[in-house]
Design a protein around this nucleic acid. Structure first.
Lengths: 367, 367
DNA sequence: CTGAAAGCGCTAACAA
DNA sequence: TTGTTAGCGCTTTCAG
């Protein structure tokens, strides 16, 4: 029951800690017989190494993990940050140090930042490659130097990155199509609001929705795909005129964070709840539209969870030697009126320090 | 950029490490002026404590966490086990030891097991209180001895347990109602399949569904509530005759793991996809019914995540002094045809993982 | 009030 | 082949 360490094993084996160390780690310079004897003793007393002591002792090159992610966009990357930071704090106990570089926007100046990170010689890098084309050579260079690169949220599939934690945009679009088709009658017309189709993420969500919707909804038609360029006024105007143009419209899928103007336009037309709305991001300002039933569901990529997971993969790999999956595909979380209040993203505004949350959860007040 | 420690601060401040320690920790026996001076220096050099060293230095009593959960039921508790075990393995790095006690069934002999765990004097207990009434005094005793008790999956709200990680069954029933009402026309009749209404979890899901469904679906009616006692044949028979009795039935909500016979009955009647089916648990055998569209959605409590979270709360509390929320309410995960393949539960029925290796490889030095 | 010193359990360099 | 010893950065106790 009591925790025994190397000194105790040494005592039991009538040797010194040096010898025990050699035995336990398969080092050279020890007779096979004593090694076996010591190992047997270690096993019989249930020896477990004290990792804190080890970390403290071996700290020649500290374990460092470089992180390069953008600053917030409608809380999205802020959630990603908090997820990574929460996990990084935990890893600190195990002697892991996080080196942060945050870019102003997704992809902006990331090449330079990542190169800086590489020059710090970390054991791993966690990145959101905004411009996979430009970044891929840098990623490959890092991997060439033995730095494991883990992409998070966005991927650089053509690079040699070791792993990627993402929600597949195709799945995101498809499940939105499935949900929406479940909520409208057969043959219904629906529309898509996106940001810019040049953006990989927007394009793929849009394409997979278009492709999946008619399969899920017999006779269903995607009447329009509208680019609103993540501009509030533009989105409102375009949605408003869309709804006037297509009186038969039964559903709208918004695949950017820019859903509020769409909610407002639908509300202004008195169509809240009648035109089914499926959105993509999740943040505090959406609350009233969940409550009123304007938003029927949200297909959310859970950046907080992705961040935790990405850093955890890195740490588990470095410290435990765990294998890195080539990619780690998460299911998006479906958020609805009955559940939105349970998500940390809904506690907006207040810059709370990262709670020890693996998942979104709202601590409720003591009864 | 370089990491400075207490000795370095001591040098800079022309004091010894003892004094720096006093300043940093607000201990008594230090002049206010020197304390401020040291604090200022620490801040300016960006002091971050070395957690490994602290852990090593301060830990006289090893950190143990007792865990008492049932063996698997349709993979559910097996997932819970794996979640806890995965997190426990990680925590091992930080010197946390897990003590396991698994009961044969939920609540069966748990009092004895937990009492045994208490006698091992752990820092925390993670439990699934199957019989909250009998277990509450034991929980209270543990808390009285300073052992933090964290309930997972099921709660013992009347006890003095420090925290509980759960999916609220009311929310589960409510979101099922919301989903189903979104998928059927107004005024639709639906039915509920449950296990036994004496079981708290079944009852609450059933009640909240009944209460919520008419609110979400105008004119909607819960035609029947059927207890199938988690018996396959009984469920099939009852579902079959239900579907014959109510030709107008548009949806079914199954709130136990016993959904397969319902799927079969719906299939046998040629109603797959026409009668919308919302289920509750998630396991490999459900795959074909997701693929065929028999199951429209699954409201899943993610025991794996709950397990990870519960153990993590315990560890973060003990090691980092993080506060324990009185309850941690998770949102259930909505699983659909487009996403079910992304869940670990859909992979082959996994056996218990082997006991962790005796010795971990030493952290390898970066190249 | 402040300094000095002894470990925590482990690794690693050097001695024997 | 084995033993000895010096730390890793921090907490803690005992002197001054």
């Amino acid at each position: 029951m009591k925790r025994v360490g190397i000194p105790e094993i040494a005592r039991l084996a009538n040797v010194t800690i040096g010898t025990v160390d050699r035995a336990l780690h398969g080092r050279k310079g020890i007779r096979e017989s004593t090694r076996l004897r010591i190992l047997e003793i270690a096993r019989s007393v249930g020896y477990r190494p004290n990792m804190a002591a080890r970390a403290l002792s071996v700290r020649r090159t500290p374990v460092r993990i470089g992180i390069c992610i953008p600053r917030e966009i409608h809380y999205y990357f802020d959630q990603l940050y908090q997820g990574i930071a929460a996990e990084a704090q935990r890893a600190e106990l195990s002697g892991v140090e996080a080196i942060w570089r945050r870019t102003e926007r997704l992809g902006e100046g990331e090449v330079e930042q990542v190169q800086e990170l590489i020059s710090a010689e970390p054991s791993a890098l966690v990145l959101t490659p905004g411009g996979p084309r430009e970044l891929s050579p840098v990623i490959d260079e890092a991997e060439g130097r033995g730095i494991r690169v883990i992409c998070v949220d966005t991927d650089a599939p053509a690079s040699r990155r070791s792993s990627a934690v993402c929600v597949d945009p195709d799945v995101s679009g498809r499940v939105a199509a499935e949900l929406l088709s479940d909520m409208v009658p057969g043959g219904s017309q629906v529309a898509i609001f996106t940001g810019m189709l040049q953006i990989e993420d927007h394009r793929r969500k849009t394409v997979s929705f278009r492709e999946a919707y008619p399969r899920f909804c017999e006779g269903g038609v995607v009447a329009e795909v509208i680019e609103a360029h993540d501009d509030e006024d533009e989105a409102f105007q375009k949605c408003f005129s869309l709804l006037e143009r297509h009186k038969a419209l039964r559903g709208v899928y918004v695949n950017t964070a820019n859903c509020l103007p769409v909610c407002r336009a639908i509300g202004a037309m008195g169509l809240a709840g009648r035109v089914k709305l499926v959105t993509t991001d999740l943040f505090g300002e959406m609350r009233p539209y969940f409550e009123k039933g304007t938003i029927s569901a949200c297909v959310y990529s859970r950046p907080y969870v992705q961040g935790e997971l990405a850093l955890r993969l890195a740490v588990d790999h470095i410290l435990h030697g765990a294998q890195l999956p080539r990619s780690y595909l998460l299911s998006p979380q479906l958020v609805m009126r009955s559940t939105f209040h349970l998500f940390r993203e809904m506690r907006t505004a207040s810059r709370e320090p990262a709670t020890p949350a693996l998942e979104m959860a709202a601590p409720k007040a003591p009864a």
